[in-house]
Design a protein around this nucleic acid. Structure first.
Lengths: 242, 242
DNA sequence: TGTACATCAGTGAACGCGCGTTCACTGATGTAC
DNA sequence: TGTACATCAGTGAACGCGCGTTCACTGATGTAC
């Protein structure tokens, strides 16, 4: 009640807390009806406050959605990072498998949030070009990139060549230079391809497109990850199921 | 006006035509605002008819959405089939590349429809369990399966083994038996993994997740397809860009 | 070929609803002297 | 420590809107005799 620290005034603390409660209620609603169905009035009702009150915290519905999408990316990124770093001394292959498994599990356990961040864009909602959303989104990629960079430093990453690869690398090199990353473009190319491979499997499973053919897609994930690690040149490590 | 054939009466023809016009107007609207934003009243207004009139053709909004989703799957399947069969005598690798390229192009040229069929499920909309939707959805898979079956018959398809593969195959074998397909389960396993790989790349590109890193994802697609064909054991053919 | 009846496409009005957002306000919390 | 004032969280009512769906109806199209 009468704490000592000055900067976080009582009002500020309450404000932050209410802001979080709003997001929590909105998130709970999204889990029920999806992002497109988010209703400010319903959120306000859940919290027992009037709809107008929300506008003290978020300028608009889009504003709240932006915050939730950024939260979603951050939650996924944190999950992936935590799995990746659970055993920092493990072989890169094992760490990549752990990170990928975490990616899949998060998607399956948070289908609506996964749809919110990676599903089709919500009609009428336009993400701010350089806002918290795109920052947080990049964090997911960065969580994987760290592993690919490590594998490359160990001289274990197999990067393909050929004319298509040559056509691909300049754009990626430009991006890496822009981001201040000291990595060959090929490493990023390999990351993107691997991410797409993981993502494709996870999207199809999370959105139910395997269901009629394959009730449990876990073995398909295991097979795919094994092949992926082998293709990357990481199968010399001791990769086993996490 | 006084045509000869009996069965398609004048009324029936007009009815079919109006039904198509409704779908066309709804599709145009979906291209603008996405499937979740589809409004019966707006469709009716576009056609210059009263909202109530639509109920002569579709029982409900869900009913219309179901028809449109089925149309979307069918359009994609037809596009893939056409590309696959453009040169029936070509090497299987070339035909698979052509089919995959068509899949990607269709998604990029019909983003909203692609989102409608493969994006996150529309809130409040529940697809009928065994309706036209799931039938048409299976047609897309079948378009690719034919090629994998052909490759397998030619003895060219590389099917992995190992404990995970063994865990995967029983469920697929059950599905194939159910569908009356005379194929080893491994062929279907390989198809699903390949489809996921293609799909992941296409979803990420179509939904804009590569955009900040890689403005044009075409070279990444080319690289991935080359690797995919090689992994399948199909690189002995004359696979070149379609 | 002409008439009586059934079918059915489409209308117009209404139902009850929920939506995002604005605005003038009240009352509690915080700040300066 | 006590008072005067500024800040700001939250209210309640209203705005204007669009939504899916139902219902009793009218008038054209098709069918049977």
């Amino acid at each position: 009640m009468s704490s000592g620290t000055r900067p976080p005034t009582r009002r500020a603390r309450l404000r932050a807390q209410t802001s979080d409660e709003i997001k929590a209620a909105a998130l709970a609603q999204i889990r029920r009806v999806g992002g497109a169905g988010l209703s400010l009035r319903a959120v306000a009702a859940d919290l027992g406050m009037s709809p107008a009150g929300l506008y003290r915290y978020y300028d608009s519905r889009d504003d709240l959605l932006t915050a939730l999408i950024a939260d979603g990316f951050n939650a996924l990124a944190e999950t992936v990072e935590a799995a990746r770093d659970r055993d920092r001394d493990a072989d890169v292959a094992d760490r990549l498998l752990a990170a990928s498994t975490a990616y899949r599990r998060w998607a399956l356990e948070h289908r609506q949030e996964f749809g919110l961040i990676y599903g089709d864009p919500i009609p009428g909602y336009a993400a701010p070009e350089e806002g918290p959303t795109s920052l947080a989104s990049r964090r997911v990629g960065a969580a994987f990139l760290a592993l690919f960079a490590e594998a490359w430093r160990q001289g274990r990453l197999r990067v393909p060549d050929g004319p298509d690869q040559a056509a691909l690398e300049p754009a990626l090199a430009a991006y890496l230079a822009d981001a201040g990353e000291e990595l060959p473009a090929g490493v990023l190319a390999v990351l993107l391809a691997a991410w797409a491979r993981l993502h494709g499997l996870v999207v199809l499973e999370a959105f139910g497109h395997f269901h009629a053919i394959l009730p449990d897609a876990e073995p398909l994930f295991a097979v795919t990850m094994r092949a992926l690690l082998a293709d990357l040149g990481l199968d010399r490590g001791s990769a086993r199921t996490a």
